[in-house]
Simulated assay, not measured.
Amino acid sequence: MKLSLLFSLFWIIFLQATELPGLFTKSFNEKKLNERYQIIKPIKPGYLEADFTGDRITDIAVQVVDKKSKKRGILIINGGSNKHYIFGAGYKFAGEDFNDTNWLDGWRIYKDKIAYKTLFDAEGDIAGSKKVKVSHPAISIYSIEDGSELAGALIYWNGTKYVSIHQGE
């Protein structure tokens, strides 16, 4: 009997820790995003939260899959404006050549104030990098090969809109 009670308490705590914040879920449903997208949690953490825009209000990012195309992506709902933004899931990342994050092995909040955008030459070979100022927390997404981060993108607010830059190979 005690083991059953202990398991029940553990399960309740686990569900609370993995549930999305209520304001996010409410906005997701009111905007009818649930009709087109399914929230997925293929990697941990299941969602990211930070003040991505610098308005001192928490924003939430989740991974989604477009129900028709089956393409994966990232959905951000800004807490202050309640606007949503889609990266992937059939929409091209700004400045990138992909519209599906099926390659994504990891993600995290990026807190450094400087990032490096990978530059490519006309043949697609790496030609160097360019320093980029990042004023607010950003979302780092990446693929992993042989246990190390190989390549990815950084999604950040540039003061007027979300942009992404390629990082790594």
Score class of each variant (00 low, 15 high):
130 K>N: 07
72 R>W: 06
39 I>G: 02
16 Q>A: 13
136 H>E: 11
15 L>M: 09
61 A>F: 10
157 W>C: 02
62 V>F: 01
103 W>S: 05
87 F>G: 00
9 L>D: 01
111 K>R: 14
151 A>Q: 13
20 L>W: 12
166 H>T: 05
10 F>V: 08
11 W>A: 14
117 K>N: 10
107 W>R: 13
114 I>Y: 07
22 G>V: 07
54 G>D: 04
14 F>W: 12
83 K>V: 00
129 S>V: 01
109 I>F: 02
107 W>C: 04
122 A>T: 06
67 K>T: 14
73 G>K: 08
51 D>V: 13
146 D>I: 01
141 I>Q: 03
43 I>T: 15
14 F>N: 07
160 T>D: 11
119 L>D: 09
107 W>L: 02
129 S>L: 00
6 L>D: 09
164 S>V: 04
1 M>V: 02
140 S>V: 00
53 T>A: 02
89 A>M: 10
28 F>P: 02
138 A>K: 05
11 W>E: 04
4 S>I: 14
42 P>K: 03
61 A>M: 11
49 E>S: 15
51 D>H: 11
102 N>M: 06
73 G>Q: 10
110 Y>V: 02
15 L>T: 02
117 K>E: 15
27 S>N: 12
91 Y>E: 15
3 L>G: 09
115 A>L: 05
100 D>V: 06
39 I>R: 06
37 Y>R: 07
6 L>K: 08
59 D>I: 07
25 T>E: 13
169 E>Y: 08
104 L>G: 04
85 Y>N: 09
69 S>N: 11
166 H>R: 14
135 S>C: 00
2 K>T: 06
146 D>F: 01
104 L>I: 11
29 N>T: 12
8 S>N: 06
94 A>R: 12
103 W>N: 06
120 F>W: 13
42 P>W: 04
138 A>Y: 06
167 Q>T: 15
105 D>F: 01
14 F>H: 09
50 A>S: 13
71 K>P: 03
147 G>I: 09
7 F>I: 14
86 I>Y: 03
84 H>Y: 15
35 E>N: 13
55 D>Q: 05
42 P>E: 04
58 T>I: 13
14 F>V: 07
96 E>H: 02
169 E>F: 03
60 I>S: 04
136 H>A: 01
80 G>Q: 09
57 I>N: 12
88 G>W: 11
116 Y>V: 12
121 D>I: 00
69 S>V: 09
7 F>L: 15
10 F>E: 00
142 Y>H: 15
168 G>H: 03
159 G>S: 12
99 N>Q: 13
31 K>L: 15
108 R>N: 08
66 D>F: 03
169 E>M: 08
91 Y>A: 11
148 S>L: 14
160 T>Q: 09
150 L>N: 13
65 V>L: 01
55 D>N: 15
108 R>M: 10
120 F>E: 03
21 P>H: 00
60 I>F: 08
162 Y>Q: 04
